[in-house]
Amino acid sequence: MEAAEARAALARRDAVQGVGRRAHAEWYGWYLLGFLVFTLLLLGAAAAARTQPAVGVTLNAVGAVLGIAAMGYAGTRPVVTRDFRRFHAVFSLGWTVLYVAAVVVGSVWSGGAPAAWWWASFVVLGAWSGGAALLARRARGRR
């Protein structure tokens, strides 16, 4: 094999990989932006509504639905880039920490909210994780 052939092969590799990256880029950009906006919204709401943990709980319930939907939608895309699931897991974990913090801190600020907030948090997180796992399995063709 000549150097020119090798360079052509490497250029072909870059071109093919570029097609995949471009196909994923737009949706992935929206995904990241959505996560960022929602996280900022959550933090802002938790700070603004200190005595109302329900705000944090509600926002996180919405976040859970969005997280599951994002995972489900990712499974329908023709391109799933490497490390996407890892990114999703890390972001979901970060959100989980924020969620629990909102509930716990919210409860403290509200002077001892009912322990139901705790259970509610676990129910939502369970639904989030279970739903995401189910969708991931379905998207991979395992029913």
Partner: peptide
């Protein structure tokens, strides 16, 4: 085959048609 592997190497998975 090289191009197919190039596409797959940069992704977790790709749909056949893609």
């Amino acid at each position: 085959r090289f191009s197919v592997m190039a596409a797959l190497a940069s992704a977790e998975r790709l749909e056949f048609r893609f």
